[in-house]
Nucleic acid binder design. Structure first.
Length: 476
RNA sequence: GGCGCUAUCGUCUAGCCUGAUCUAGGACGCUGCCCUCUCAAGGCAGAAACACGGGUUUAAAUCCCGUUAGCGCUACCA
């Protein structure tokens, strides 16, 4: 049974990069009939915030990534929030110390900082020299008396390691080139990421760890730690990182790439999933517009790319538009209304619902809707009235149109074609000179949706009013 | 600095493992044309890439080595 996990730290709103890791885990698990587990890594007391934890769950749910085990839903191997698992970690740390695989280290943070600084100016690798391992009893007592609280460090005994990465293949490390004994419990008593991630992956019976490439170099530490605790390491797969449009690394501080921002801008979650999946994965053929079921059926870790990619807002916007086209008219209206509701626009619901289908095939995201919905407003400024309305020809045309509209007043969905059929013989103008005065007097703008489509929705009575309003310009 | 990962159009990518089918395919964006009352949308066309240098081979985008560049790790962040 495949068990994967997504383990974010609640130190900010989750973004594209985080959620792609979550998506790939989810897809990998679901294809193999496995379980997707959510675990909250909040061992960083300073930066973790409960509101971020809440937000992260909301965002994940909005994306359609439901976890089988985790906060809220529970599960066999809980709790799933690390700050509630401190006793478990403490037990493991105590055992490692008892077995001589870790030790209390009385070297202060300031001392290690100095060591690093010295190494830097002497151009040596800034690696902890494990001095705390061999402190004498007297030295330790002296430091204790001085009020120094120890960290706990894990002893690196066998530094040569080979990792069989699911995405990158074989990667070998020599930890001696990289780090010294590393901290698994801070002086304040909190366990570190390296410790908790190993304990939890083992206890939660995680079989496959799919995470960002930023953890690739940490993996040998984790394999060692797992081994020391008597656990079998999971299979690892390291995903390349996503960068911003200019190639800059993504950061939790970048508002524009947070899932919340996309939600607010009116993007579709299935489009986001589709786009994000394409960043570092492809189905192997030319298909790009993939529905959620297609994604689930097609996803395959072996087709995941090893090189990093840049987020391209334009392509995402385009793809979202494609997903909008895929929606049925009813779904489009429902979802658009859900988006529009909180905005409190001053139009009656029925009118909004009636006009919305007009825009379905030519917007890319819901954010563009409020602007388009302005056709529902009866009061507006005219664009270039001197050109399209305040001319003798336009005056004649609009007067004819106004009179003609009365004939359609009784119809619920009047036909624009029939209207034109009757207007054309009466009009002295054609082409642009015919349509633009109508367009501008009815909507105020030179550009906008097809008149054919707005005509039946707005209705003859209302258009008559707008026509008269335009005609009134001549009286001024 | 050390260690690791990566390298195909501006961007996302297919092709690489299993060398010849690559005159390198698709998509976004860009340009032009068509459709059209306008703007979009849509359709068609075009410009645009194998980072560099060495090997191996009859043959290299594809295999090997090196260089360069980008990124990651090198924390009492995760």
């Amino acid at each position: 049974m495949i068990r994967v996990r997504f383990a974010p730290s609640p130190t900010g709103y989750i973004h594209l990069g985080n959620v792609r890791t979550a998506l790939f885990n989810y897809l990998y698990a679901k294809r193999g009939g496995g379980k997707f587990i959510l675990r909250v890594e909040d061992t960083d007391r300073e930066r973790s915030k409960p509101e971020y934890r809440q937000a992260l769950m909301e965002d994940l749910l909005w994306m359609g990534l439901r976890w089988d085990e985790g906060p809220e839903v529970g599960g066999e191997f809980g709790p799933y929030v690390q700050s509630e698992r401190l006793a478990i970690y403490e037990e493991h740390i105590a055992r490692l110390i008892r077995e001589g695989k870790a030790y209390e280290c009385y070297v202060t943070e300031q001392e290690t900082e100095e060591m690093k600084y010295l190494a830097k100016i002497e151009k040596r690798p800034p690696r902890f020299d494990n001095r705390g391992r061999s402190f004498s009893r007297a030295e330790i007592d002296k430091r204790k008396a001085a009020g120094i609280k120890p960290t706990v460090r894990f002893k690196i005994e066998s530094p040569l390691l080979t990792l069989h990465d699911m995405i990158r293949g074989e990667v070998t490390f020599n930890l001696d080139d990289m780090v010294g004994d590393f901290v698994i419990r801070r002086a304040d008593g909190m366990p570190t990421f390296h410790l908790v991630v190993c304990v939890d992956d083992a206890l939660m019976k995680i079989t496959h760890v799919i995470r960002g490439e930023d953890h690739l170099s940490n993996t040998p530490k984790h394999m060692l730690l797992l081994g020391a605790m008597g656990y079998e390491p999971p299979a690892y797969g390291h995903l390349s990182l996503i960068n911003g449009p200019g190639g800059e690394p993504l950061s939790k501080r970048m508002e524009s790439i947070s899932i919340r921002a996309f939600r607010k801008a009116g993007f579709l979650p299935e489009a986001l999933c589709n786009y994000i999946a394409l960043l570092g994965w492809s189905p192997g053929d030319d298909r790009e517009i993939l529905t959620w079921p297609e994604l689930q059926a097609l996803f395959d870790l072996s087709r995941v790319s090893r090189s990093s990619s840049n987020y391209d807002p334009e392509k995402f916007s385009w793809l979202n538009g494609q997903h909008l086209r895929l929606l049925s008219e009813g779904d489009f209206v429902r979802r658009a209304v859900t988006f529009l509701k909180p905005l409190g626009l001053p139009y009656p619901d029925e009118e909004v619902a009636a006009i919305l289908p007009v825009f379905k095939d030519n917007v890319e995201h819901f954010d563009q809707l409020p602007e388009r919905l302005k056709v529902l407003a009866d009061e507006f400024e005219y664009e270039k009235p001197e050109l399209w309305i305040r001319t003798p020809a336009a005056k004649g045309l609009l007067e004819k149109a106004s009179a003609l509209l009365d004939e359609f007043a009784a119809e619920r969905m009047p036909s624009y074609e029939k209207f034109l059929e009757k207007l054309k013989p009466l009009a002295a103008v054609k082409g642009k000179d015919l349509f633009m005065p109508l367009r501008v007097s009815w909507t105020g703008r030179e550009h906008g949706p097809e008149l054919k489509r707005i005509f039946p929705v707005l209705g003859a009575a209302r258009l008559k009013k707008r026509t008269l309003r335009a005609l009134a310009l001549h009286a001024l």
